[in-house]
Design a binder for these strands. Sequence first.
DNA 1: CATCAGGCTTAAA
DNA 2: TTTAAGCCTGAT
Length: 281
Amino acid sequence: MTLKVSSGKLSLENTLNCGQVFCWQRDKDSTWQGWIHQTPVKVWMENSRSLCVEVKEGQLHEAEVKHYFGLEDNLEAILRTFPQDTWMRQAIEFSEGLRILRQPAWEGLASFICSALKQIVQIQQINRELRQRFGIALKSGNQFPTFSQLVHYEETQLREAKLGFRAKHLVRTIQQLNNKEVDLETLYSLDDVSARNELLKLSGVGPKIANCVLLFCYQRWRAFPIDVWILRGLKNLYFPRKRKLSLNYLQDFTQDYFGPYSGVAQQYLFHWLRHRNLPTG
DNA sequence: CATCAGGCTTAAA
DNA sequence: TTTAAGCCTGAT
């Protein structure tokens, strides 16, 4: 069956291919195959204001689709809180229709632990490898394995999924979650700082990855991940004359300057910066 | 305390 | 050969 959901402004390209999520693939006909939590779907836009979702009968409700794609967020109002400097204006124009998804916490956490020193294409490969090797098989693909399912595997087995040295961290984090040292479910009810501190207890989770998980999985819109792209961008665009900038100083600056939705602004900047520096762009 | 090398894997350019 | 969405450890 096909669900048709009124979406407001939404660009699937900018939303699914901006580096916030790694379980979507575009087909030739600009439809996308991926997952809404553990449900396999195919999605496409109709008349630029309706999101169509092909899904097995009874597997998904419209509310779940809206929630996953963040369609209840007032995007225009969020964009108005951004500083209207020359760079942000370009980023907003380039990233039109980009929405922050509400991803499942475990898959997001695992993906970002695996993201260290990896390009987006490679992180997508890891996502597929983990599904194919360890996930429950459905007709249209394998589900992302839960940490409970993964707890039975050794580091060497995870390494085969192209994880490299990140396998050690993922194994440790899986054990920590299995021990209830950290409980991903309770993070939803914690304030930003407490939730962040919980994530930082996990192996392989530093400031950058913690902020990614907060922003993309826990709807903490002030979380501003600083990676090498954003670091270069901030230095070149906002502090071209400064020689030395500490990470702490920049982190404070982003909170103040980009405002209550600074994390969303980060993603708009990030998406723009990446394509701005590509050979074709 | 902050800050900073060095090491870690792999694939693509 | 270099580079790519970092983190951890240990040394100052």
